[in-house]
Amino acid sequence: MFSTPSRSASGPLAALVLFLMSTLAHATTVRVHYDVGYGNRITLRGSKAPLSWNTGTPATWTAGNVWTLSWSNTVGDVELKPLVNDSAWSTGANYRIPAGATVDLYPFFGAASGRMQYVSNVYSPQLGNSRTLAVYLPPSYGENPLKRYPVLYAHDGQNLFNASSAFGGVEWRMDETANALIGNGTLDEVIIVGVYNAAANRLYEYTPCCDAQYGGGGADTYERFLIDTVRPYVDQNFRTLTGPRNTALIGSSLGGLVSFYIGRRNPAVFGKLAALSSSFWWNNQALTQQVEAAPTKVAVKVYLDAGTNADGLPETTRMRDALAADGHVQGQDLYYYVAQGAGHNEASWAARLHLPLTYLFPWQGTVY
């Protein structure tokens, strides 16, 4: 049994212990979470020694199917990719590993093709009606059961994935877009929950109180449906990452309005939101006036956009200005985009969907 050397200790053993302690304290470490099956292994190839792009460096298996490799932080930042048996490369972009960091990776090695799962007749005790949830499960969901995922809750779910249920027969192609972005390494894998609207009650459910012409006012109740019914169901039935940094909202038109409204009211639940072509005109721009009068900034990342073709651009620009005055910074916790020539329709939203998706969930942006 060895004793820990004192500060005054000297000799080869003390020097070795101090060297090892120093090395461990200043190491860069990668932990690859993946079950390769019996007899297989994970290697890493990368941009700097001790890694190279020509030959893989074996990682060490540890309990829980975690493959670990460490090196000195003096190497600097490294780009790398995991491989199975040093032959099958992980799907997506290279991983960037900052010097001195410990980084957990959850790769997959198959095609970048997620799958859909539909949950019918989800009852809302808050609203007294039922609807469908369309759940996009990302490519690695079945391949890497060690992985959990951030979640994007999307309104008007029937318009997102399937032309047969979409308004006017035009879908957002959200699953195809997510697959492509994950495959090229610009989007982190994310579970997308498309919450169908209750068609007869859409205007009521998606609006704060109350517009002089249209009424509305059910957004607070719809908020409770999302937070108290939908989200617990998703967290219980799918491998999710919880917490605001891994939970977002997205919608367009009135769906953009309600995304903005609910997200800012619940920053401890939703840490980011995307509001496309939002109906900020609602109730004489009351929501914008609230932001303008707010005494403190709400800590939520916000994506805002509008097209130039009768798409509410002046109202969206005013909201952008209100957020900027509140302390939001373009390119950091605010992304404002003007879609030249775009109108207020599903095709326009589908065409620029890659922007909010990659802003909300950029490659290697997930917090595990």
Rank of each mutant, 00 (worst) to 15 (best):
Y368Q: 07
L323Y: 01
I262N: 10
V122R: 14
G183E: 04
P314V: 08
A275V: 01
Y337G: 05
E223V: 02
T177F: 04
N94C: 07
T316V: 02
P208T: 15
T308R: 14
N201T: 15
Q117V: 15
A248D: 04
F260E: 03
D188G: 15
S3T: 13
A134R: 09
R96I: 15
A166G: 06
P208K: 10
S124W: 06
Q126P: 12
D77I: 12
A154C: 03
G215P: 04
E171C: 02
Y106I: 12
T74H: 14
D156N: 08
Y141N: 05
G100V: 09
V258I: 06
L137D: 09
P98E: 10
P58G: 10
M174V: 02
L353P: 03
I227C: 02
A101E: 09
T23E: 06
T4G: 10
L334T: 00
L146F: 02
R173A: 05
N65E: 11
L313G: 02
G307N: 10
T316Q: 06
K297T: 00
M21I: 15
G183D: 07
N162E: 03
S47D: 08
A293P: 00
L51S: 02
N162L: 02
S113E: 13
A111E: 15
Y204K: 10
S348T: 09
